[in-house]
Computed example of a mutant assay.
Amino acid sequence: MFNQITKRSFGFNLAVVVGLFLVLGLIFFMLLGVITKHGDTLTVPDVHRKSVKDATKLLEDAGFNVDVRDSIFIDSLPALAVWEQTPAKGAIVKVGRTIYLTINKVVPPMVEMPDLVGLTFRSAEMTLHSRRLNVGDTIYKPDFATNTVLQQLLGGKLVKAGRQVPEGSSITLVLSSGTGSIENPVPDLIGMTFQEAKVTLSGRNLNLGTVMVDPAITDTANAFVVKQDPAPKNSLQELSMVRAGELVSIWLSPNPPVKSGGDTTSEN
């Protein structure tokens, strides 16, 4: 057979080779559509908020491949639910296309609680969002610094700055409503312990101002109030008046005051 081929002219052999390549090329292009599934397309279904198990089954049954590529934490989304899909729902893609999923984490990551006290509500809200925390309830309390944060609470309890809290937590903010419009008599704190004075001021919607502490005090909570500003009465022995949210400063001593002839002095 080799001798027959070599006996033919070079031109004839070249034509045979070219013809063979053309036939192979024609067959290849005819099969190309089958190999690449050209023209076979599918519409991507919506798997948002479905569990990753259900979403994977739905997509694979529809002719897609599935790859979980990322995770995120959304507090309002069930654990292991799909948050995002690529390509998006409704996209027209080829059969066998890989759909990439972003799912919700099972355990929320921990973030550091920021210090919001003294910030305006707007600044506190932005700070919380930057840490992926949410603003929960807002409680208003009389205070002179209107609309600023007085306390930050988690689960009804004070939460200190720097503490690790779950991402997505709702933080309750206690905000200042400003001073009240109605004046009330200044409570007489003289003779009370520091703890009793704080409770009394809180019950009157007044705030504790400067606290002057005697160096001899070893137990601040049980130290005694021996002076306050404003005083319960003015120089004319008239009742002093304050508005809700105003400050009352006190002086503490380790010894209770001695009241004599209507005057109050502290023991030394």
Rank of each mutant, 00 (worst) to 15 (best):
N3S: 11
I5S: 02
G11I: 10
L14F: 08
V17Q: 00
V17L: 06
G19L: 06
L22N: 02
L24D: 08
G25L: 14
F29K: 09
L31W: 02
V34I: 04
V34R: 05
H38S: 06
D40C: 03
D40E: 10
V44A: 05
K50C: 04
L58M: 14
L59H: 10
S71V: 10
I74A: 06
D75K: 06
L77E: 03
L77V: 12
A79M: 12
L80E: 14
K89Q: 15
V95N: 11
G96K: 06
I99W: 14
L101P: 09
T102W: 05
K105C: 03
V106W: 02
V107C: 01
P108I: 06
P114I: 00
V117I: 06
T120N: 02
L128E: 00
L133N: 00
V135E: 06
K141M: 11
K141N: 08
D143W: 10
T146G: 02
T146H: 09
L154N: 05
V159E: 01
A161W: 00
R163D: 03
V165I: 04
P166N: 02
S169N: 00
L173Q: 03
L175N: 00
L175G: 01
S176A: 07
G178D: 01
E183I: 07
P185K: 05
D188K: 09
L189H: 07
T193H: 06
F194K: 13
Q195I: 11
V199M: 12
G209F: 14
G209L: 13
T210C: 11
D214T: 09
T218I: 11
T220C: 07
T220N: 07
N222T: 15
Q228D: 10
P230D: 15
A231L: 13
A231Y: 09
P232N: 11
N234E: 03
S235W: 02
S235F: 09
Q237C: 02
Q237V: 04
E238D: 12
M241P: 04
M241S: 10
M241D: 06
R243T: 11
G245E: 05
S249M: 04
S249D: 11
L252D: 01
P254L: 08
P256R: 09
P256E: 07
K259T: 13
S260I: 15
G261I: 10
D263I: 09
